[in-house]
Structures are given as C-alpha cells and as structure tokens.
Design a protein around this nucleic acid. Structure first.
Lengths: 229, 229
DNA sequence: TGAGCAATGTTTGTATACAATATCAGTTGA
DNA sequence: TCAACTGATATTGTATACAAACATTGCTCA
C-alpha cells in the first residue's frame, strides 16, 4: 500500500504499479517520454521487463507506444475524454446499485477509511494523492459489487480519467468530490440501491461538467516542430 | 480482412490476430497450452515476440498465464461467464441506441454484408467461422456508434464470450442469432433507437439463456492431480 | 543566412544465451 | 503396492547482444 518503496525483487507488476501510481498522482505529466533504459535503470532491471510493463500500460490506455519512437504517457484528446466518461456512465451507476445491495459492514468501514485518507491528503495539500485515492474509491465499489470484469474495465477508465483531469480540469477545488463520496457511502450503508445509482450518475456528470473539453491546440511541444510543416 | 495469411513479415499484431481468430472459431479449445517455442516456430519468430503476443492476449482475457508454467487458452468459470454477459448488458444496449442514431447507409450495407457472410458460413456448416462473424457484428455496432473505448471493451467481452460458448453452449443451432441480428439491422436502418436498444437487450438475454452455467467439476484434467491433496 | 544532407549518436526491435523453475520418469524404501 | 525422493529434461524468466530506425549535429552549397 505504500507509495514509495525500495523493493528488493522488482517484478513487472511492481513496475506497472509504481508507474501507474505516479501517473495517477500527477507526478508525471501526460506526454512524458518513458525511455526503456531510463525506466530500467530506476527500477534496477533490464529493458526486457520494462518493455513488458510499458506494453501492459499501453493496453490500459495509460501509455502510448509509437513504433521505433518509444513510449509516452498518454494524452487523451477531448473526444477520448468524453468517451471515457460515457463508458463510466454506462458501467458505474448500475454497479453502484449492485454494491449497495451487497455491501457488508466491513465493506462500508473500508470505504470510510478510504475517505478519511482522502481528506487527510487534501488537508496536507497533496492533491495528487487525493485524486488517486478518489479513483481507488470508485474501483472499490466495483469490487464490493463483486464484478471482477467490470472492476478491471473501471480500473482502466479511472486511470484514463486521471489523465483527463490532468489535462482538462478547470478548478483546483476537488472538495465537491469528497462530499459526493460521503453521500454515496451513506446510500451504500443503508442498502438504498436506487439512491446509490442516482448519486453515482450525478457524481459522474458533476465531474464531467468540471472539465473544459473544448478542442484546442495541444499540438507539438516545441515551436520548432510547429514550424517544420 | 482475410482469415488465412502467409505473411512474410509477422508482427506481434499478426500473431495476436491469428491466435485470437483461432480461438474465436473454436479451432483451439479452452485450456489448450500455448508453448512459446511452439507458437514461435509456427509463426517463424523468436519467443520474444510470442511472449509479447501472449501477454497482450492475457490482458484481453483470452489467455491465462501462470508464472513458470506458461500460457493457456482461458477457461472462464460460470461466474466469469455471467460477469461477461452482465458487462455486455450494461454496455451494448445503449451503444446500439447510439449506433441507430448515427448509422449511415454505408454502415448498414456493411452490417448486411456481414450477415450474408454469417449465413454463408452456416450453410457451409462452418459453425466456428459463423460464431466469429457473429461476434464481429457486435463489435461493428460499437464502431458505428463511434465509441472507441467501448469498442475495445466489447472486443474483449466478445472474445471471452466465444470461450464461454465453447464451454457452456447447450445446443448447436445458432440460427436464432441470425434472426436477432437481422431485426437489429432493421432497427438501425430505420434509426429507431428505442427498438434497437430493446432488441439488443433481448438478444443478449437470449444468448445467455442458451448457456448451461451450472457449476460443475471442470477441475483437474488428471485424476492424479485430484488425489494429490 | 538558411535549406538540404551526411555523419554520428541514441533509442527501440528482435534474437539469442543463460539462469531459474517446473515437470516427469525411474528408483528406493517402507 | 505406493508414497516420497532424485536426477534428467523441458519450459519459462531475464539479461544481453546485435540490427534497424530515428534524432541530432555540423557541414556544404546556393
């Protein structure tokens, strides 16, 4: 669970986990190049494992790989951003309903612990960490609903949402989120499926409405490239 | 688009595509071991590329990889099978509605061509091919809806559905499917979103009802293993 | 001065080599 | 007879080496 780790045995899973976490917490920005050698050196492994890790992340939509050019942290376009939230709108509300109908006291306690950590991160002004925890919250609901397949999809969507937020978020006050999560936990505690479903639907719309998804030049980083053609 | 190919340059994509196709068409059964060397020899490449391909297929749920034991064509449990169809039930109906609202004459023509191929495959008693085409039909709808993210999820779900059908299908007459697809295309042609959504919902329930998902011993292949513990 | 191009260095693509682990056959001992 | 062990073999895990593609620098020439 720790965010930082000096693991003696670094497996592919760990590389994926740590890179993913770094992206979720906005410690690395969309578009950042991930050179195989460099990453390998950081984790103390050969390029073989790094390649494997990057390929997996590509499949999850977190990384873009261009042949012979390498891997980059993905930069979702506004269209892709909309698609991500459209997919979430299809999956999450009903999953939340199912979770409300299944949640045990233990599940609720875990969600509350989660929220506490989120609050604490916000107090410490670690916005990145708070965002990551907020994402984990959504994944946790799918887990409570006991839907492994949807959970995995949601994991990808939450990942990509994090990129979307890094690129298109309007304000910096993520406070509204915490309240929404609080209300959700209440609905889950009382087993009110209808309410939970509605709250999740609204929550997703809220988040989406905080994005500025107008098409813009998110073009080449350097002026030089821009002038080339 | 061709199903068979003797490609001079075999890339990872092609390995994935051909293996996937073979699974979709039930030419290889769930549980089949996929040795890296063996696959590599078939495609004329080294294990490096094969490993990459198998890892990708694992992520798509088509292959299971056990550390130090290798890759196998996945064998979804009844629970996983249900999850796959539950996820489809969330994604496909609304996506079909969107497709109905966007479909061009060209899109419709393509779907019809698709169905014709499916019929033709059935006439030739190539059930595996027909099944694959049937799956492609569902993916095509997501493409028409212009939802890349959902399309990719659906691709995974259709893949896994193919495994589910290989394991749990009750009868051999896949005829009902064709009719359902025909009705769907009609709804898409007339742009009737409501109807298209309903038809898809019903279609998925139909398919699900044709499965025998009772838990059964799909346990260890050998008696020896069963006795070991 | 600046566009085009050649030479050089860097990075990725793929194959291969070696290490670690699992599988299986044959053997031993109760 | 059968369980447990041991060694041989097969298979996967990881690192490394070399090839191919790309990027960059500095040069030439108009």
């Amino acid at each position: 669970m720790a965010t930082v780790s000096e693991s003696p045995i670094t497996s592919v899973e760990q590389i994926v986990a740590q890179l993913t976490e770094a992206v979720h917490e906005h410690r690395v920005q969309p578009g950042t190049k991930l050179r195989e050698d460099e990453v390998g050196e950081i984790f103390g492994v050969s390029r073989t494992l790094v390649r494997d890790a990057l390929r997996r992340m590509e499949h999850g939509g977190l990384v873009t790989i261009q042949r012979n050019r390498g891997a980059f942290v993905a930069k979702p376009t506004p269209k892709e951003a909309r698609e991500v939230f459209e997919a979430r709108a299809l999956l999450e509300p009903q999953t939340t309903r199912a979770a409300a109908e299944r949640a045990t006291a233990r599940d609720i306690a875990e969600l509350e612990h989660h929220m506490a950590e989120e609050h604490s991160a916000l107090d410490r002004e670690e916005a990145g960490l708070a965002l990551k925890l907020s994402g984990d919250f959504h994944v946790a609901i799918a887990r409570i609903a006991d839907q492994k397949t949807i959970e995995q999809f949601l994991r990808q969507l939450v990942s990509r949402s994090s990129l979307v937020i890094a690129l298109y978020w309007r304000r910096r006050n993520a406070l509204c989120e915490s309240n929404a999560h609080h209300a959700l936990v209440e609905a889950l505690r009382t087993g009110d499926g209808d309410k939970a479903e509605d709250l999740m639907k609204g929550h997703l719309l809220d988040v989406l409405s905080q994005l500025d998804l107008r098409e813009r030049d998110q073009g080449p980083v350097s002026l030089k490239d821009a002038l080339k053609r």
